[in-house]
Design a binder for these strands. Structure first.
Length: 246
DNA sequence: AAGGTCGGACCCTCAAGTCT
DNA sequence: GACTTGAGGGTCCGACCTTG
């Protein structure tokens, strides 16, 4: 198996006039097992998501509160202050201080070792410690459209934090049908984070970043989930399908 | 089927401890 | 002062329960 597989998209053509849609498969080696992407958390969940133990986002109101029509009740949960003055006892000494942090595991464990410590992600042996560094996160991914074979940044979009959380809002699989839209013509209100008010969007595709688990850690692929789900990036195209072109 | 509940795995933050 | 450690305290996955 090659280190860097080329993900071959499946092409869907929904109508004669629309551009083909390229759906990239999820790399099976990057989902469940070593090398899977780390779970991301918001800094502070809203009180509703916190109580429900459900995924929140940093927008206020969050998508979940908007979905359940309780945007007014979407407020940050309070965090307790960390205790001070706790005695911790002596730390375990690291005998070989010059050794890279994860070189021990590389030296003593087989490559197929179980799930690595997410803070020191294990990778196949490479030449330098720098090459082992998996990017902790890729903040504010650009908004790509997946209507060409090469995802392209939508015109007018830059790397804006306003769209960041929505991009990463992946509903649980058993809830995804709630996001499916029966009609391509129907417009549905959706909270516009940038303007702080409801706007409208065309139902389209949810995109999901897929990070490479091996060097050289290129920018993430973006897969398009199927079936059609809410596209959270209506702004600044509140009434135009993303794929509409001249 | 849809939505609620919640145990516990996972994650982040940051004070204490250690190093230089 | 810089760096490392590791535990407090948080998020949220996923299994199960409840409701209509």
């Amino acid at each position: 198996m090659a280190d860097s597989e080329v993900l071959v998209p499946t092409v869907f053509i929904s109508s004669e006039n629309s551009a083909p849609i390229y759906v990239y498969p999820v790399n099976p080696t990057s989902t469940n097992t070593p090398g899977r992407t780390k779970r991301r958390q918001v800094k502070v969940a809203c009180t509703n998501c916190q109580r429900a133990c459900k995924k929140c986002d940093e927008a206020r109101p969050c998508l979940r509160c908007v979905k359940y029509s309780i945007p007014h009740a979407c407020v940050d949960a309070k965090r307790k202050a960390r205790k001070k003055g706790l005695k911790r006892g002596p730390y375990k000494k690291n005998k070989d201080k010059n050794r890279p942090i994860n070189s021990q595991s590389l030296a003593t464990e087989p490559v197929s070792a179980p799930l690595p410590d997410p803070k020191v992600q294990e990778t196949p042996a490479t030449s330098s410690p720098e090459a082992l560094a998996v990017p902790e996160r890729v903040d504010y991914p650009p908004i790509y459209q997946h209507l060409s074979s090469t995802p392209q940044l939508l015109p007018g979009f830059h790397q804006k934090e306003h769209y960041y959380q929505s991009l990463h809002y992946i509903p649980p699989f058993h809830h995804q049908h709630r996001f499916a839209h029966p009609s391509a013509e129907h417009l549905e209100p959706v909270y516009s984070h940038q303007q702080g008010q409801a706007s409208y969007h065309q139902p389209t595709f949810q995109v999901q970043p897929v990070y490479e688990s091996h060097p050289p850690y290129n920018p993430p692929h973006y897969i398009v989930n199927h079936p059609i789900m809410v596209h959270p990036f209506s702004y600044p195209y509140p009434s135009q399908p993303v794929h509409e072109s001249t």
